[in-house]
Amino acid sequence: MALMNSNIKNNMKSTILALISTLALSLSAQDISLGTIHYDRTTDYSRIIDELPYLSAEQKDLQKLTRGNRELRASPYILSYSPDQTIYTYGKEERESNWSWRKDEFLIIHDMAAGTLSKQYVLGGKLYLLEDEAPRLKWKIENDIREIAGYLCMKATTYDPVKGQDITAWFSDQIPVSAGPEGYYGLPGMILMIEVNNGTAVIEATKVDLDAEPYELPKKIKGKKRNQEEYVAQIEKFLKDCIEGERNPYWDLRY
């Protein structure tokens, strides 16, 4: 009986090892340092409102109550990556409604070779383009592991002092590119998931496509130029004004 048990165990063990090794093999067969990662982003506006400091506990509860269990809508994004550069932008959305909304230009280009970051953002109804050296992000490595889109990921956390957000990143060293979506990077592997403030916004990889054509950048990337210092000052002022004026900043600013 015990023998049989250990046999099964051994069998299982070998299956799993085989699984892992095929995973590794299939990875090594193709060049994993080039590809496109598809992400889904969900933003929970009810949680955003819950984070606003100027509302009373009753007002926060009232909006949660009114929203109820409304399902969050996921919007697709893509990250086209190579060892030198990543481009993060909207993915192709299969429209389910028969209504079309205006979409703002949105691109984040991280040039790892040059160490620069370019990011389009809309603030106060104007389109800006941040262009500067990519700042170093201070990541703390934690002990959790999980699988995302077929890749084993490790957990790292950081804090965004500009927007005051706790960021959790799940990265996989199986994709040896130190990059990620939504303007996050700087870990020993590709970031496959970002959680902002414990899940108020979640950007999660759904698929890693190694055969995809690289994303073609438009000839001119629009937006008023800003450097990192100006960007930080601008966002900080905007947030301060909004909070003071009791307006939700994230109806305008990307959360």
Binding site: K9, M12, K13, I16, L19, I20, L23, E142, N143, D144, I145, R146, E147, I148, L152, K155
Partner: peptide, 24 residues
């Protein structure tokens, strides 16, 4: 342990945490 690996890799896509002797 293979059971754990199984959940991590394919079963529940569940994050598990290993801190020394603690499995979460």
């Amino acid at each position: 342990a293979e059971e754990l690996m199984e959940i991590v890799v394919k079963a529940a896509r569940a994050p598990i945490s290993i801190r020394g002797d603690t499995i979460e």
